[in-house]
Nucleic acid binder design. Structure first.
Lengths: 399, 399
DNA sequence: AGGTTACGTCAACGTCTGTAACAAATTTGC
DNA sequence: GCAAATTTGTTACAGACGTTGACGTAACCT
């Protein structure tokens, strides 16, 4: 099985010719512009990249001609002399389209090169997979039209789904949707062109990564409405399992002798920290349960407060297992948990400090995820546009 | 904190000039020779790399001149025409030195470019850290002398220790050795030059990776005498946590309400699957307990058999957590567990098939680790020589 | 107005790979 | 037994790229 590749480095097992040389240096220069906090001048690019002024000039010309960057007016550097010309990412040109399917909401999102959200739409999820995919296709087309109206061209589309994905296209199973073996990529292709399908927890983590860059490099993003997933970012790169089927935090055993789970195992985290367990009777309807739980907890409801404490402890146990195996320094509580973070952080941190072997030397920070419940759809859009950000040559070759 | 880098790809944030181009293609070509099962000809290299015959010729000339490869006599290809000249890795030239500290054994190992073990020595471990390090320095010098006698030059030294390592040098704590805050890298430097210190579980996994290449790409290698560690390899690359402090499988919670552990938590895997738990009263003396346990199990001792079943189940629970988070398709039982694998595999597999969410689609194979208890010292030596295998330019620049 | 800094352009140079022709070594065919 | 065919490896030349250094222009400051 192949899986979508989110690579930063150019392939290392490919011969390089002279033109790859130019492509590499162009990509390097462009990434400097992407990573710069403010408009950056040619001189600064030359210093930052180690290339010479003439080379930078040529590269900048190509980037300007391709519409990837714009000259953003004089940007003063220091004291005297000709002012530097600031270069910034263009707000027109390539864009990424993200789609997301949650328990009862579909969403679509367009982001431009700068990472700004240019379009965001929601719709209720129809019952069947076919209807939901048709609806997503319609939302995607509308988003593309809205993008075109702002001189944006969608260069890549990613769909987030709550379940493991095979070959970047086939949803093997998504219990909360009632899906099994749905080839979502093939279904959307006629309307939207090639669509990469990926796990929502992974994409949410990518969303938090891109949105926070370059502050966060190593973290795990807990993500979940009813299924609890974990997206793992290490060294600024999303970590996928061998077959892309990782991230099932909800089925990590918290107590191997615990109660049975629908998955066939016993004592799964899902049973302690799932929204249904915190608020029994909560039907699958996203965020309303989280909001309801938040309200009850704020009102001091003792049962809900106790359930939240249990949930946080169980999350802490599962996260301790994760961090003992792959140490990260930050835990982001995302999805519905971002709304409940204030009720969970204390008990999560308590278990982490007890159970993480190196917590004495290297404390783990637990925080709500900045992007919250919409991280997945934004991460989907960002991961689509990120291909251009990492390799602008593909866009230049196209134009 | 920085950590040792095991990188395959050349830095992506560096400008490339013409000479980097040559360096890249040389490295690419050399890796093809490394990965080839049999001697490979220039023309085969051209096809494999995508470079042209003249370019390959130049690169091969450089590699021959640098002593990294040799012409291994005519190797017939097919029918007619000039015969191909086989090229193989030289058995002289650069070599890697590995050192290992276990509970009561020190070991040293030299491997050449081909991955062949050219020198392997053992010694008992002295009590104190200072004595042990002095002893290791002596073993290292002897190994270097033995290497020199066979026209080998040690280009890198790696030390494996049973505990988390900071900055590639400082052993924060190693309970089974009674070490705390020992700067092993600095202690060995005067005698051996720069030494990279690394975790033994990680190095054992690297050893299994290099020894099995290219068969295994994604696996976890359980490694342990008394501490249970996990080395994780994904996509042919060793996975380290953000701060290099991962791999503590022994302190993953199997039952969060279980008995207290020395680490301060409760229900750690260590308590169920540690050698002391399988054979109560087993003093820390490596492999003798494993051998003793194996003997008792073979004799049908019911208590030991029951303990082995409990240990396997607990291992299965912890590994299920790992695989649910980061899916790998293979589990290697290494260290002492390689000797007990036949008693453990069944119960480990039972728990995996129950608890791994995707086990129905993607079964996980559990096997004894081929290199067994010596994987760490061999992995240490291999990781040292692997720097040359990945980037032969460093050796050529030196010579 | 003169000094200062940023930027573009040009030519010469060195290095690399690719293309194309050439030399070497073996098998095949008569 | 000897020449042609075939495959492998090497040499010669052309094209592409970045670097160096120099010159010219533009835009700000004192």
């Amino acid at each position: 099985m192949t899986r979508p590749v989110h690579r930063v480095a150019p392939a290392t097992d490919t011969p390089v010719r002279q033109e790859s040389l130019r492509a590499h240096n162009l990509s390097l220069t462009f990434r400097q512009i992407v990573g710069a906090a403010a408009p950056i001048s040619r001189i600064e690019l030359a210093v930052a990249t180690g290339l010479t002024r003439p080379t930078i000039s040529r590269i900048v010309d190509d980037l300007l001609a391709g519409g990837l960057i714009i000259e953003a007016g004089p940007a003063r550097s220091g004291n005297s002399g000709r002012p530097r010309v600031g270069l910034t990412l263009a707000a027109t040109g390539p864009a990424g389209l993200g789609l997301d399917i949650r328990v009862d909401t579909l969403s679509a999102c367009v982001v431009d090169l700068t990472g700004a959200v240019r379009h965001l739409a929601f719709a209720p999820r129809p019952k069947t997979a076919a209807e939901a995919l048709a609806s997503l296709a319609e939302m995607g087309r509308a988003a593309m039209a809205a993008a075109a109206a702002e001189h944006l061209t969608v260069v890549g589309t990613t769909l987030a789904v709550p379940g493991p994905v095979e070959d970047g296209s086939i949803v093997r199973f998504a219990p909360v949707l009632g899906w099994r073996d749905v080839d979502a990529g093939a279904a959307l292709r006629p309307a939207l062109g090639p669509v990469t399908v990926d796990n929502d927890a992974s994409l949410a983590a990518l969303g938090e990564l891109y949105a926070s860059a370059p502050a966060l490099r190593d973290f795990v993003c807990v993500s979940g409405e009813f299924d609890i997933g974990a997206g793992l970012v290490l060294g600024g790169a999303l970590l996928r399992g061998a077959r892309g089927w990782g991230g099932s935090l909800g089925h990590v055993a918290v107590d191997s002798d615990g109660p049975p789970c629908a998955c066939g195992a016993t004592g799964c985290l899902q049973h302690y920290a799932g929204l249904q367990q915190i608020l029994p009777g909560a039907a699958p309807m996203p965020y309303s349960p989280a909001v309801a739980i938040d309200d009850l907890a704020s009102a001091g409801n003792p049962e809900v407060l106790a359930a939240l404490d249990r949930a946080g402890s169980a999350l802490g146990v599962a996260l301790s297992a994760l961090i003992n195996i792959i140490d990260v320094d930050t835990v982001l509580l995302g999805g519905s948990y971002s709304l409940l973070a204030s009720w969970l952080i204390e008990s999560v941190e308590r278990e982490l400090s007890r159970r993480v072997l190196t917590s004495g030397w290297a404390p783990v920070s637990v925080r709500p995820a900045p992007l919250g419940p919409d991280a997945a759809v934004m991460g989907a859009a960002l991961s689509a546009i990120d291909q251009v950000r990492q390799d602008p040559n593909s866009w230049l070759a196209r134009a």
